[in-house]
Design a protein around this nucleic acid. Structure first.
Lengths: 361, 361
DNA sequence: CTGAAAGCGCTTACAG
DNA sequence: CTGAAAGCGCTTACAG
């Protein structure tokens, strides 16, 4: 008795005509041509699997002829490893982040990983992450974004390694990589104090971020060591336009000349550019003669002649190495402990802030 | 007779201890709890599939209880649709591209697509794309990257829609979206001519790109209409440092004052900033009094006070809409013809170039 | 080293 | 509307 064989999910006949797509070649097609089993094909494309040299050669030859490429999606379904890493970002306007996207992608590509990119407007990435997890990403890098503790727990339960980049977090079981924001802020304080500044103002980033909190604490701690304090403060929220507004609050015509700060530490270079433009072009103040400006990040534009911004450099390369290292380690061994990496931050002295006398050429 | 049932690919026993991962919940788990078939579960998560309201409710309730989320990888394997779009880029230093990454990601996310990001250092993305195709991406957006005609053909054979963003190409069966680079260049020529400039120089981007070629031809055509021509030319390759060098060639001390151009059209804003810094800070020339500078792109920094760059705006939003529209259309209907979309480019007048008299306030 | 076969977690044509 | 079952294209434990 012959069974009627039916093929669900396939049209009864291939679509006719020149527009017909070549149906993708699979390991079975290769096996047929090479006259080996489908397993043998799979093994020759699995590093470390045992295949006789002769078998391997025939498979590779057949694969070449057919233009075969193993289907990564099918592999993922079998192995539960997608070799995709989710990168979650919220703020590409700050020039530090394009650099991070670029370098991090390349670094992960080098290790055979691919980046699934998620941009979130809000800092809350929960909903996106749920979507992410459906794609079986092997790991998650959160840059400039926060994670609710509920979701952090869920991700931890699913054993997906997470690294917070440039953010720390209260949620447990998550590694973080950031620059030494407190140390950086403190170095700025020391530099300004040594330069004889008496009235230091602070232009804050988003107040709920660890970067802003640590940079500000570093500044305050460093100033205190010299008997100084922050005399004025406004919030720019890491946003260009709001930083302009904050600068007007701090230095605008309503501020008496005697009250005017003689130095401004800005929580990011991106905002520092806004501040410098307002100071010079709108308020007619000279930088650094009337007011010294110091930023944070050392983005490429900080070196541009029009700004020549003295700033704290975050070592992006070191931060990325630490991020990828942490991720790969956790990918290999789930039991690895979650740590906090702090990359040293160094002051880069340019022309936007008055220098200590002994530091001058 | 009882068959011995074995379970390959699964450890004989679950790993013990508190570190044991919850095994992911599948549609079968949900079906069991809801007391329906696995098919019914799948259908309630498939938009448009027919499920009785009561069944759906029980499934959703069970799914909620278990924290079930359909596995997107398994869905991809069945449907041959991954809902992933590959975005290939080479140059995030030019500020136009972070903007594109950000907006394009968000736009695609809105339609339920995800972005698989590939950064290539070289402009040749062939090897990366082969890797891409293994992930069954539904479509490809190539921004600032080229496609070899061999690979273009291969992708076309595989019926994967491709949109070249901000690049045109000689390879067939590929759609392109760009701004009207020729029209933009021509508008610059007219503006400079109307402003009374006599000696216009051109600072070129990478010479093998369509953007550079079209902008330059537009400039030359526009100048010719006014009896003018390009009196000097140097190549900056869309690179900041090389643009600085090119500016020195065009305006440096070796150039006799009588020979010095009175206007400079730069193929991208990114390079225009480099040029302005060299002109002002290194060569002591005033912009626009001694030399007018016009850029191309209208990146956010062009509006910064220190540059106030007159430039040609590329309408990123329109370009992205066109890109996504083209992509989705081809995703739905393979037979749709491949087209070339040209988005109008408009001159944005700021302070870096002398204005025509009748145009002044 | 090799092949047959089960399984990864879905979708969907088919037959009620 | 519903369930049983084949199929998507791999990987890998098992038994030679």
């Amino acid at each position: 008795m012959m069974a009627t064989v039916s093929y669900p999910n396939r049209p009864a006949q291939p679509r006719p005509g020149p527009a017909m797509a070549k149906s993708p070649v699979t390991s079975i097609d290769v096996a047929r041509l090479a006259e080996v089993s489908q397993s043998a094909v799979s093994r020759t494309f699995t590093p470390g699997a045992s295949v006789a040299p002769d078998t391997r050669a025939r498979v590779l030859e057949a694969a070449r002829k057919l233009g075969y490429r193993p289907n990564a999606i099918a592999r993922t379904l079998s192995t539960r490893r997608s070799r995709m890493i989710a990168l979650v970002m919220s703020n590409l306007q700050n020039q530090f982040y394009p650099l991070v996207v670029e370098r991090l992608s390349q670094r992960l590509q080098k290790d055979g990983y691919h980046v699934l990119l998620f941009i979130t407007e809000t800092e809350d990435a929960d909903e996106l992450l749920v979507e992410l997890m459906r794609y079986q990403v092997d790991g998650i890098v959160m840059a400039s974004t926060q994670l609710s503790s509920r979701l952090a727990q869920e991700i931890a339960d699913a054993r997906i390694p997470v690294v917070m980049f440039n953010r720390s977090t209260r949620a447990g079981r998550v590694s973080t990589v950031s620059s030494d924001n407190h140390g950086g802020g403190r170095a700025v304080a020391q530099f300004l104090a040594a330069g004889g500044h008496q009235r230091v103002a602070y232009l804050a980033g988003a107040e709920d971020t660890s970067t802003n909190q640590d940079r500000e604490r570093g500044l305050r701690d460093g100033l205190a060591e010299h008997g100084l304090r922050v005399v004025a403060r406004a919030v720019g929220h890491y946003d260009f336009e709001r930083a302009r507004q904050a600068t007007r609050e701090l230095f605008g015509p309503l501020v008496a000349a005697s009250e005017r700060p003689d130095a401004l530490f800005v929580a990011s270079d991106h905002m520092a550019f806004a501040a410098m433009d307002v100071l010079r072009l709108e308020l007619g103040l000279r930088v650094p003669d009337d007011v010294s400006v110091v930023g944070y990040d050392d983005v490429p534009q900080a070196a541009w002649g029009s700004y020549a911004l003295t700033t704290v450099a975050q070592d992006a390369t070191a931060m990325i190495e630490a991020t990828v290292g942490t991720l790969l380690q956790q990918l290999e061994d789930d039991a690895v402990s979650r740590g906090q990496v702090l990359v040293p931050a160094t002051l880069v002295v340019r022309q936007s802030a008055r220098r200590p006398v002994e530091g001058a050429a």
